[in-house]
Design a protein around this nucleic acid. Sequence first.
DNA 1: TGTAATATGTGGCTATGCGACATATCAGGC
DNA 2: GCCTGATATGTCGCATAGCCACATATTACA
Lengths: 115, 115
Amino acid sequence: MRHIRRLDRELKKGSAELLVLSLVEPQPRHGYEIGKLIERRSQGALRFNAASLYPLLYRLEKRGWLHGRWVEKAGQRRRRYYRLTPEGRRVLGRQRRGWAAFVEAVRLITGLEHA
Amino acid sequence: MRHIRRLDRELKKGSAELLVLSLVEPQPRHGYEIGKLIERRSQGALRFNAASLYPLLYRLEKRGWLHGRWVEKAGQRRRRYYRLTPEGRRVLGRQRRGWAAFVEAVRLITGLEHA
DNA sequence: TGTAATATGTGGCTATGCGACATATCAGGC
DNA sequence: GCCTGATATGTCGCATAGCCACATATTACA
């Protein structure tokens, strides 16, 4: 991944959950922070629109995989911090295995070595 | 990828093009054969429904990435064989790089090592 | 005769990412 | 005081693509 190329929209579908769950595993984070982390860690290759990210967080909370709470501090806008629930942790494990299986399946079919 | 688990539907989106283009690269193949190859090479982990595969082949042909022709032989049902066009070959190269970049981006964000 | 595999095709449903737009706070420059 | 940009969250409607269910036809085999 040398040049910053915007990645295919369809390819991203279904990967967002794994990314979000992974990022809130070590510590609670708020939505904007998650979005920026995805962008920075991928060196700009991967970016999720706010119109994707916030509804996703809402879905993950509704499913009981994340727990969110509002935090208001003086000198800061309101933020909603999300932490991983026990069930979210189990789902993350399943998604990690699922992702590895998927990458391996594509490798087997295409004969591609991964970067 | 030990046990044959059906992979997440959303995860598959966007990967089908790369798989099909890869499979018809060395030789022309027909739709049913492509479907079976995906299933066998991935050891059953990845499977595309006919309702995904045939419309996809139609789209790839319409875009000029594949060229299809009907082949009828005695003792066989009619088959539509697809071969890669020169443009399809260029697209395949782009998609391979895009896939590698995507996998690498997910790895950077999640810290996951791929299987 | 019946079942399974081969081979292709379609209508409607669903899930999800995105463009465009909206709102509000805060920092910094002019 | 005003403007711009970053921070922070949110929604409406659109487009894409995989799937369920169903349909059709031929061949192979018990």
